[in-house]
Design a protein around this nucleic acid. Structure first.
Length: 246
DNA sequence: TGCCATGTTAAACT
DNA sequence: GAGTTTAACATGGC
C-alpha cells in the first residue's frame, strides 16, 4: 500500500466526500482523545509524503499507514480489534486499520517542509540538493529514504529511481557527479508520478524494472538483491550498468 | 504453513 | 549523551 503516491490517491479519493463535512461520530482503538474531534468540521485534507493530514476546526488528525495499514469508505469488513479509527459524517464513514493515528495542533501545516514532498506543487529540487550536500558521507540508498529530503519516497521508488539513472545504491553522496545527482533528484519526483499513474491503473508491479527482478533487461546480467545502507532495506540493482563511483 | 515485506518509533543496548 | 541495534506493531501475498 503505502508509499507517497498511495497516500496521494487516498487523499484524492476521500476529499470530495469528506471535505467541509461535520464529524458526528468518532470510534476505534486509536489512543487519542476522540472527544476532541466529535462535532468538528473537516476543513481540509492534505498529504505530505506518506502521511495523510485531516484538518478540522479543532485538532488535525495525522494518519500514517506504516507497512500494513489500510482504509475503506462505508465498508467495515474487518475485525473490530484492528479498526483503529472511524470518522462518521452524515451519510458516510471512513475507516482506517492498522495504522498510526495522532492528533496535531490546528496549525500542523507549519510542522512540515512542503518543499520536501516529492509529489507536491511546492517541491523544490534545489533545496533537496542542499540537504544532500549537508550529508556527504551518506549512501544514496539511505538518502532517498530520508523523509526530510524526499518525503513520500519508499523502498520501491528508491530501487526504481536508482535503476533508471544507472547509479549503484551504495555510492556515497560526495562521490556522485553533480549531473548524476541532479538526475536522481529529478527522477525521484518523476518516478513518483509514474508510480501514481500505474497504481491507479493497477499496473504498478508490471512496470517494475529492478524491484524483485532477477535479470537486468538492459544488459542481461543478474539483478543483485542486497540489504544496503544503514537502513538495511531490500535493494535490487544491476552490478553491470548501475555505476559505482566510490 | 511460515516467511517476508511498500514503514516508523521507541526502548534497549554499546 | 551519542550512536547503533532490536523489538514492536500488524496484514496479506506467495
Amino acid at each position: 500500500m503505502p508509499e507517497g503516491p498511495s497516500i496521494a490517491i487516498l487523499k484524492e479519493l476521500i476529499t470530495p466526500v469528506f471535505k467541509g463535512k461535520k464529524v458526528i461520530k468518532v470510534f476505534g482503538n486509536a489512543k487519542i482523545d476522540m472527544g476532541q474531534l466529535t462535532g468538528k468540521k473537516i476543513t481540509d485534507l492534505r498529504s505530505w509524503g506518506k502521511q495523510l493530514l485531516i484538518f478540522t476546526n479543532g485538532p488535525t488528525i495525522r494518519i500514517h499507514l506504516l507497512m500494513f495499514g489500510s482504509y475503506s469508505i462505508d465498508e467495515d469488513k474487518k475485525p473490530a480489534r484492528s479498526l483503529r479509527l472511524a470518522l462518521t459524517i452524515a451519510n458516510h464513514t471512513l475507516y482506517f486499520y492498522a495504522c498510526s493515528v495522532r492528533l496535531l495542533p490546528a496549525d500542523a501545516n507549519t510542522l512540515y517542509d512542503w518543499q520536501a514532498d516529492v509529489l507536491g506543487d511546492e517541491w523544490d529540487p534545489v533545496k533537496a540538493r542542499k540537504k544532500l550536500k549537508a550529508i556527504p558521507g551518506t549512501m544514496i540508498c539511505d538518502a532517498l529514504l530520508d523523509q526530510q529530503i524526499f518525503a513520500g519516497v519508499g523502498n520501491i521508488i528508491k530501487n526504481e529511481v536508482l535503476y533508471r539513472v544507472k547509479l549503484h545504491p551504495e555510492n556515497i553522496i560526495k562521490c556522485i557527479p553533480r549531473l548524476k545527482l541532479s538526475e536522481v533528484i529529478k527522477e525521484a519526483r518523476n518516478y513518483s508520478f509514474d508510480f501514481l499513474k500505474w497504481k491507479k491503473e493497477f499496473t504498478l508491479k508490471k512496470h517494475w524494472l529492478a524491484h524483485t527482478k532477477k535479470v537486468c533487461i538492459r544488459c542481461n546480467l543478474p539483478i543483485i538483491k542486497k540489504y544496503c545502507g544503514k537502513s538495511k532495506r531490500r535493494t535490487f540493482f544491476c552490478s553491470g550498468c548501475q555505476v559505482r563511483y566510490n
